[in-house]
Design a protein around this nucleic acid. Structure first.
Lengths: 197, 197
DNA sequence: ACGACCAGACCGATTGGTCTATATTTGTAG
DNA sequence: CTACAAATATAGACCAATCGGTCTGGTCGT
């Protein structure tokens, strides 16, 4: 339909991004070797360096941008469909919960992982992470403004949302319990209700 | 005084822990090679494997336990000196802020970094991280109970505190701004005031 | 002389990355 | 439609560098 019937297999560039993202989330950046990614993706090394001139770092940046794009799109759709902030948070927490559970609590946020592992000289990677966080925060702020919050309050709550969920996700994985995620939900609902009063 | 005057230099085991902790916080676990740690510590490889039979992972575990011990001690002293929760949070945020700033926003929480990089089969490391988080949460809960919160509410607020600060620290580093940390402060003050009403 | 500790040469394995060769697709002129 | 060149993409052998880790001596204090 949408694809003009090229081959049965997915675009190999996309395959690399997906498998790399999964591995990075489960083991981190440096713990994941190129060979591991390639064998899992069923592709040779030549393909990787064809699609990603800069090698591993380029691939990581593509992963970040891809994921950020998906999240922003999700938030924009939620805004358009007038989904309430509380619903959104509950939904995200639920999704994160089942995701962690079905992966034996052995995975984490791609952004957080790469942020922690990026060396000071990895400027491009750091820039793309910063940008991703900024875009996500902005999309969230938009949704909050749509619900009556002032621009500055929306920005604050959006920021709180991002770091709370990141932190809760990380801690839930480390503790092997959904506790932190659930706590983050109540924390954020309290925060937004106070901002809307 | 406390040390029975052996040599002028610090205990080499402690030196290894300190330098490794610093490097792990700045670059992560896998990005930090043993040679980097050793050359910075001014010690040969023999010393490392004398003090840490299990090699790199053992060293990382020692770093985690050492840092966790310091934090718990700090919290216990705060409890004994009847420091208020709000004061404590403000102080921690201020400390984290200056620490990040003086390191060009290029460092993160040791616990978060190792949590993200630990492979599923690194059981001992994961266990020590889990334990550290648990101990810190308990120490915080104790402080909160001392200020009138019920046991269950204290546990909840303590948990919120841990993941919020972790998340805010991570995001502040990534964005190169103290914004997330400041937001975490107001978020947590709101949370605790609601719990004490 | 005996453990505790320092010192570093050495090792196999693995890393990210390069390079050349081969398919496969695409664009275009006859 | 065919022919053929250019671009795109697959394929994997190969490489220097680095990894964590082992091993053997030596040097202390007691």
């Amino acid at each position: 339909m949408s694809t003009p019937s090229k081959t049965v297999t997915l675009d190999s560039r996309q395959t690399l991004i997906v498998t790399a993202t999964n591995l990075f989330q489960k083991q981190g950046y440096y713990a994941t070797g190129l060979n591991e990614i390639l064998s899992l993706a069923g592709l040779p090394k030549g393909s990787l360096y064809h699609h990603f001139r800069g090698g591993k770092v380029d691939l990581a940046i593509a992963c970040v941008e891809s994921l950020a794009g998906q999240i922003v799109l999700h938030l924009q759709r939620a805004t358009l469909s007038q989904q309430s902030y509380s619903e959104l948070i509950s939904q995200l927490v639920r999704q994160a919960d089942t995701w962690l559970q079905s992966n034996n609590w052995s995975c984490g946020s791609l952004f957080a992982t790469l942020s922690h592992e990026a060396k000071p000289e990895d400027l491009a990677l750091k820039a793309s992470l910063k940008d991703s966080y900024r875009c996500i925060q902005e999309a969230l702020a938009q949704l909050l403004q749509e619900q009556g919050l002032s621009e500055s309050k929306a920005a604050d709550v959006a920021l709180s949302t991002v770091f709370s969920l990141e932190g809760a996700l990380s801690l839930s994985a480390a503790l092997g319990s959904a506790g932190p995620l659930k706590e983050a939900e109540t924390l954020l609902l309290l925060r937004v209700s106070e901002s809307m009063q």
